[in-house]
Write a protein that binds this DNA or RNA. Structure first.
Length: 119
RNA sequence: GAAGUCGGCUGGACAGUCGCUGUGUGUCUUGCCUGCAAGACAUGUGGAGGAAAGUCCGGGCUCCAAAGGGCAGGGUGCCAGGUAACGCCUGGGGGGCGAGAGCCUACGGAAAGUGCCGCAGAAAACAGACCGCCGAUGGCCCCGAUGUUCGCAUCGGGCGCACAGGUAAGGGUGAAAAGGUGCGGUAAGAGCGCACCGCGCCGCUGGUAACAGCGGUGGCAGGGUAAACCCCACCCGGAGCAAGACCAAAUAGGGGAGCAUUGGCGUGGCCCGCGUUGCUCCCGGGUAGGUCGCUCGAGCGUCGCGGUGACGCGGCGCCCAGAUGAAUGACUGUUCUCGACAGAACCCGGCUUACAGGCCGACUUCCUUU
């Protein structure tokens, strides 16, 4: 079936999980995001988000960015390999909406699947 | 109708598809102590704000000792009431602004002490005098009369001098210079005297009080600054849900009883106090992670009663987010006046700040019409 859900199983939760992904040093970045990835043991694609206070002081803005990332991940998840992803937002992401963010994320997914999926 | 003042409400709507999260029900799977736990699926149902914000006050709750005594430190500051409490709110008083509805107000004490007061000005805190006014009185000068021992003395006169001295009315400076206006008075002036206003003190009346009114009395206290130190009155112990409690891997930190009371360490800034460390015996331990705390509450709606009001009391009805790497979204369509500020994180009461618009009520002033 298509993986359209994004339940708590599909999210990264603990600090150790995040650290593992960062330590793997498999990364793709542009002016909106830095996306890290790391293979997991066939748990399906999982997502972690980092939107720091430096991106925007307003909680509303940070929530909006997270929702856009989460939504795109949810819709793309069927085509992704079994990796843990961590998306770190950068301040440029604040200025853009919808389409530009979509396009950027699609690039990242593709690149990381190629780069990290074989290792 | 226009301009304005005050108070309150609201914060796009509808439909479909996919998705997140709490919870009820059902089915299935797994586990075993056979009715519970976990998971999956289906279905029903709830799911950000008026400020959720700033974290500026106040409280609940939790631990620290039960939060206790003293010092230090901090806060508040007209009066009365409301409240769990407040720096909040309500009512009242004083002062200021406005034509008015109304608005603003850190509004205790400067005869306890200390500090500071730029520029200007003669002088800035102690009664002093730069210009000016006067010069009655005393002095000097001039004139006259009388007396004369020819030095001068006495008396009278002078738009005379401004030496002594008297003034603070006027000028000028300033935020501020011994209360203001008028009349009398005087050499000129001055609370020097009087009237009215202001101020202090005393009394009476009204008011719970702040305070107000009236009467009497004193010619009149001496600058400002206390969001400067300070004094007075009242209030305040500290830390915060990462509080704290429980279940529990690795690794090896703990708990109880008895003895010792000196010293070390810790506890809120200090002292007291309290805890701990030391030795002996006994017991099994609690970081990662998880569960609880965690939402039924100083709750919301409505009606009645009391109160000027804040608010209180009672009846009836209702359950209204509980996430935890952190949920409210995405897409499509329709529609309108094209949507601001902005996202719960233990919970309440306030304050402050941000905000596209829209709606309602009360009142004031002006204009027009009947």
């Amino acid at each position: 079936m298509a993986l359209l859900g994004l339940t708590s199983k599909r999210r990264l939760k603990s600090r150790s999980q995040f650290d593992r992904v960062f330590d793997h040093k498999c990364c793709s970045r542009d002016k909106y995001f830095a996306v890290y990835a790391c293979p997991n043991n066939e748990q399906g694609p999982r997502l972690g988000l980092v939107v720091s206070r430096r991106v925007s002081r307003r909680a509303v803005d940070r929530n909006r960015i997270k929702r856009q990332i989460r939504e795109d991940f949810r819709l793309s998840a069927a085509g992704l390999k079994e990796l843990d992803y961590v998306v770190v937002a950068r301040s440029a992401a604040l200025e853009e909406t919808g389409a530009a963010i979509r396009a950027s994320l699609q690039q990242h997914w593709k690149r990381l699947n190629k780069q990290c999926g074989n290792s």
